[in-house]
Design a protein around this nucleic acid. Structure first.
Lengths: 195, 195
DNA sequence: GACTTTCCAGCACGACCGTGCTATTTTTCA
DNA sequence: TGAAAAATAGCACGGTCGTGCTGGAAAGTC
């Protein structure tokens, strides 16, 4: 790997960490350059515009999310076990310092048209699809009813996770985690095959 | 009411509408002044700092939320009916152009200490408490089990709403609304008193 | 209608923004 | 090791940021 590509990745690591706090719009070349111990212009040369930098941040963040949330879950046996593992890692992801960049980006670009909006939506859609696919494995494993609407499950699981993020990280409710699992178990039970 | 106070309110109306798109950090005095047909300094004089303007925006947004979501719900008979009405108006609130300022503010200030963070958390907590109180009326009305954990219900209802916001507004899934009600009904059923 | 208070525009400020151009240093490869 | 290519710093630009001051216009009060 070329030196330049290495530096670029190092910059992106710093940028994503900063963006978790300030959002992608709040990210500035100057402060990023200072944090990365580089000159503004030297850093800027790696991305031809600020928007390109922001897009690269989103993509890097997606990679990290796949690595830290989906990949460990996919290592577990298919079915409810995998779904549980996904929940665990997802909750840990939300608990990282600075919070989740996706949630920040969604709030920032939900109604602002442009490439950043489009990429954000595409990444989010892909995530929901992956979540639904894992729910499908639980149906195939015979753990959930055959007529289960996996997208219904995906939407509800995502809601449970979003609510966890708010209650735990933002409002610091101590029982948030426990209530999250209560909600999840109730959701699974209601779709579980009655033997 | 003095002229100044009238202008101040007019400014805040514009500011809140703008902040729904750009967030409270993205709000700038210059663009706000242009949108309000005022000079920068003339507008600025009404708030002694940008932070004060942002705080005023949050408070105004809270008033609007109470007026448009909680007040109509409280006009309904206590119990599940009221909870349903709350859901309806809350969903309509999320569907407003620009989205919900609370969600934007939560993403912006979740890990940035300061008065804006503190006010955001306080408002959000109050909202959850009000939501739990409405759930309590359903218990008192004999519609939900006596041993229902109303904060569990509040957390789950909020999750259902958050998920609706994402699926509907951000990802434009056409079935989001229907699935939202499916989730809500199952939640209520699981806590309903068995007669 | 005079007087006082309030409101608001004009203007200026230092700081930082994103973005380019130009050298110069560093890396890469023959 | 020397030539070609890539990476980075220095510097400058027009623009906008938040914030103050100051004077005149408008509103409120008697």
């Amino acid at each position: 790997m070329r030196k330049g590509e290495l530096t670029r990745q190092a910059i992106l690591d710093v940028a994503v960490r900063m963006a978790r706090y300030s959002g992608l719009s709040g990210l500035t070349i100057g402060s990023l350059a200072a944090a990365a111990d580089m000159s503004k212009s030297g850093l800027y040369a790696h991305f031809k515009s600020k928007e390109a930098l922001q897009l690269a941040c989103m993509e890097r963040n997606s990679e990290q999310f796949r690595d830290e949330v989906f990949r460990p879950a996919l290592a577990k046996p298919r079915g409810v076990t995998r779904l549980q593992a996904l929940m665990e890692h997802w909750m840990a992801w939300y608990s990282r310092p600075g919070g989740c960049l996706f949630l920040a980006a969604a709030a920032e670009f939900d109604d602002l048209p442009g490439p950043l909006h489009d990429l954000m939506v595409a990444e989010q859609r892909q995530m929901i699809d992956s979540l639904a696919r894992i729910a499908t494995t639980a149906v195939e494993a015979g753990e959930l009813d055959e007529d289960t609407d996996v997208f219904q499950v995906a939407q509800e699981v995502f809601g449970i996770l979003l609510s966890y993020n708010w209650m735990s990280r933002i409002l610091s409710y101590p029982d948030a985690s426990e209530r999250t699992w209560t909600a999840f178990n109730r959701l699974i039970d209601s779709h579980a095959t009655s033997l």
